[in-house]
């Protein structure tokens, strides 16, 4: 469709792989997260904005704490949309995806779709979206030229993969292991086989996420897929520096430059 498709093509032409970053809106303040996102926009190809939830069931401790900090900074869905609008003033090309949990999106009712479109969002990742409801979301988003990005896991049976790709667009997010975000990757061969299988079933790009903490893993994963998602690692860098703005942004930049190089290596 729009920006996401263009982005993957652009990266391909540069003989690189797509670098996707995740950070939570409002961690630890709205303004702080805005500065982080601006930095991410200058080095990543796609940015995922985490919508904080009181009960983030799929997250490891790093991202859980991030959601908690964001919620105690009084973040709201409305503020997240105005954040996206702000980011769009600075950057019109790079895709912005909202990633979150069903209940936060449901709470907005049918007006959700119009609102996110207007703000400049390009797609949604709904962690706990069940298969039966994906068709509804897929169609609603398709009507306004937005993407529904679906997750596929190591335990997803082959038959289900075929069903999932039917109601997906933009890219597919392969969860590299059985576990929560930020845990350790264990079985590279399994990821390789599964990604290969998914790619045999669809033309949609497949990226790998969960557990990518080091450049070496990012490099390995990007070789066998269309890109990688980095989340917990970035949050870790910032919280270890106690959210001191300048140090955090400098270290973030250093880390992003390295990841950038690592996903480029052939």
């Amino acid at each position: 469709m729009g920006r996401i498709k263009d982005s993957f093509e652009r990266v391909k032409n540069q003989e690189s792989k797509t670098l996707i970053t995740y950070y939570v809106a409002g961690d630890n303040t709205l303004n702080f997260s805005k500065k982080v996102f601006l930095k991410l926009l200058s080095y990543a190809d796609i940015i995922e904005i985490g919508v904080p939830f009181s009960d983030p069931m799929a997250e490891g401790s790093v991202i859980q704490r991030s959601h908690e900090r964001a919620l105690s900074s009084d973040i709201s869905f409305k503020k997240i949309l105005s954040l996206v609008k702000d980011l769009r003033i600075h950057n019109q090309d790079k895709p912005i995806v909202l990633m979150g949990y069903m209940n936060n999106f449901l709470s907005q009712g049918e007006s959700l779709f119009k609102k996110i479109k207007k703000a400049g969002v390009d797609g949604l990742i709904i962690v706990d979206l069940p298969y039966e409801e994906s068709e509804f979301f897929y169609n609603k988003l398709k009507d306004i030229d937005l993407d529904l990005i679906r997750l596929i896991s190591p335990t997803t049976p082959k038959k289900t993969i075929e069903k999932i790709v039917k109601f997906s667009s933009g890219f597919l997010y392969y969860v590299s292991f059985r576990g929560v975000t930020g845990a350790k990757l264990s079985n590279f061969k399994e990821v390789q086989d599964k990604v290969k299988y998914i790619k045999s079933k669809t033309k949609i790009p497949v990226v790998v996420g969960f557990g990518i903490k080091e450049g070496e893993i990012a490099q390995k994963m990007s070789k066998i897929s269309d890109g990688v998602v980095i989340g917990s690692r970035l949050i870790d860098i910032i919280q270890q520096n106690n959210f001191r703005l300048n140090t955090s942004l400098n270290l973030l930049e250093k880390s992003l430059k390295k990841f950038r190089r690592d996903v480029r290596k052939r």
């Binding site: 979206l129 335990t155 049976p157 289900t160």
Partner: peptide, 20 residues
């Protein structure tokens, strides 16, 4: 058959849990 009680119930979990 979808695990629904009318509009309630269902299976809103991450993909890894579905097969279990």
């Amino acid at each position: 058959k979808n695990g629904r009680f009318g509009s309630f119930g269902g299976r809103y979990v991450s993909e890894t849990l579905i097969s279990a």
